[in-house]
Nucleic acid binder design. Sequence first.
DNA 1: CATGAATGAGACTTCATTCAT
DNA 2: CATGAATGAAGTCTCATTCAT
Lengths: 191, 191, 191, 191
Amino acid sequence: MSNATVPERLISAATELFAAKGFDRVAVQEVVDRAGVTKGAMYHYFGSKDDLLHEIYGSVLRMQTARLEEIAAGPEPITHRLHAAAADVIVTSIDNFDQAKVYFRSADHLAEDKRLAMRAERRTYHERFRALVEEGQAAGVFRTDIPADLTVHYYFGSVHHLGTWYSPEGPLAAKDIGRHYADLLLASLRL
Amino acid sequence: MSNATVPERLISAATELFAAKGFDRVAVQEVVDRAGVTKGAMYHYFGSKDDLLHEIYGSVLRMQTARLEEIAAGPEPITHRLHAAAADVIVTSIDNFDQAKVYFRSADHLAEDKRLAMRAERRTYHERFRALVEEGQAAGVFRTDIPADLTVHYYFGSVHHLGTWYSPEGPLAAKDIGRHYADLLLASLRL
Amino acid sequence: MSNATVPERLISAATELFAAKGFDRVAVQEVVDRAGVTKGAMYHYFGSKDDLLHEIYGSVLRMQTARLEEIAAGPEPITHRLHAAAADVIVTSIDNFDQAKVYFRSADHLAEDKRLAMRAERRTYHERFRALVEEGQAAGVFRTDIPADLTVHYYFGSVHHLGTWYSPEGPLAAKDIGRHYADLLLASLRL
Amino acid sequence: MSNATVPERLISAATELFAAKGFDRVAVQEVVDRAGVTKGAMYHYFGSKDDLLHEIYGSVLRMQTARLEEIAAGPEPITHRLHAAAADVIVTSIDNFDQAKVYFRSADHLAEDKRLAMRAERRTYHERFRALVEEGQAAGVFRTDIPADLTVHYYFGSVHHLGTWYSPEGPLAAKDIGRHYADLLLASLRL
DNA sequence: CATGAATGAGACTTCATTCAT
DNA sequence: CATGAATGAAGTCTCATTCAT
């Protein structure tokens, strides 16, 4: 841990603290103390406290977007692909739980310009996922009485909420939760 | 608005501001300015900024708990009662959107003692809802392969997430969203 | 001194310190220490350190503008009025020496918007003074081969420079310096 | 510019920046960025930020002192020599405008020891100029009712003030301003 | 010669809260 | 009841300078 580079240690410390207490409740001093450096060092690598958040924020989303793209582009039938995508986002959120918590909670703490950029990335993700739902609807395997857009919000609410209740000490493994959530989603969409 | 009592005006102002910017991003001065009173007045009626939050926080939850109790205790079949409960929490969250947003977002901003009290109330609500799911499982109308507890988290994620994407200007009315969400939940539980 | 109001004490302390060391070399902490209050008190009355400067800055200029207007509007012949105006600005600058020094030195330390406002006031003063020179030119008593505008810059350079060399311990009284400077100006303008 | 030596590029960058924003408003980082080198390089050649200022500061003054000596030592009559000296300081200040601005504005930003050294050089210059005025007084061609010392302050105020209002885009050339200023000075001294 | 990471002190500012009136 | 002046702690950020490489 101590042999990681300074910026890595800072990101790591910030991730843990932001996840635990929320961005606004964490002082820069706490971050640098935990990373074992001084404030000057932090401002050498990051322009601001916001930058630190931005860095963390983007990493999960980018990773999940990449995985979604890959899953969505697969050759399997749509039900299978949607199930895989739905389960995957759960598993990766739990595997990177601190990062995910920061991402889930801190949307509006970013400065104006970065917030817009982030919103765009988020929107892309949302739309890729929605396209899967619509594909199933077009294929005649998913219900069409509920707008796909709403279903996606519905499902991602469940995902984001993980940050509120999930604990690694709980009885269920990430894979199980992912499967259950995906099952619930697919069941609610079938005709 | 100006003919409301001072504490009412304060709660009202705080609700709007906390909903819009988050508890930590709102200064007491902003709240009193919007309420048209001075800081002294606020500290006359409320012990602290946290108190203000606590007041708002509790009100939605208490109201929703009461409604849930009533719906759950009704004579209708379980599928009907769960559907009604699921739809109702959506509708009341949207009807009291600012309060709900504050409630959804500000869980961890309460001081230790109040947080515990609040968690207990929340847990009660969660358990009452879970009891409905379990009732359906016991009655043989809901699937049992997914823990009821998980399903409740799943659904309340969707509810809490409303605060992130819902806008009154959108195409769907509160009632529609409530119905759709409840439909999705019931569909995912049916055998 | 200690029975002055807090804002007065702050302005007073700031004036002395800014005059002695320059705006950028004075910490807010020094100002409040000298005024015998805390930083919080300062920010209760003034929005920023810049505000403090702005307050000081404006006061001399406004006073001198008022006096210039009065002198310029008098019934005396133009040579007499220009002499009086030229001497007066020296005397009032010396009588309010700390304020004047702050004014002479700190033009570009103001924030953008305030700087523009101040520049406008300054310009007004400059132009009122120039009008006197032009009046004398039009009346045929002052030379016309040198642009009035340039002469005004020339003279106000001398005035501003007082802050650099003048000391109350010196041999000359404010009135003497005023008279000498005004004599030099008038002599340089006569035909 | 890029083929100048590193210390030259640093001095050049510092001059422009100090002139534009004032010594205290310029970060060492900005200077080295503009010079296209790193901070280490700067500290290799200069002991401190103050050193940079000192270097700039001295150069104008030394040059002007040399020129004054030469003009003053000439064979021309005193009125002619004073006029030439007065005009020359204007022209050289404008020709080296950034350096001059730094010199005019940054007197008190030097550290104690350097400030004293600088003051001595400045005093020498002042006294050499004053000697010219006194020479004219002794020769019976300049008025004696105004102390020569005061007249020198008077004139150098005008010179220093150039930094505040002069712009190369203006209608007057350096030579014109020099002539006008010298004319004004001589006119104010004649009997 | 030159780099650039890192320091550490100190800068300005914000803000929840208290208290005399 | 209500005011608003004042506090004091804490917050984010800047910057001249040093030093191992």
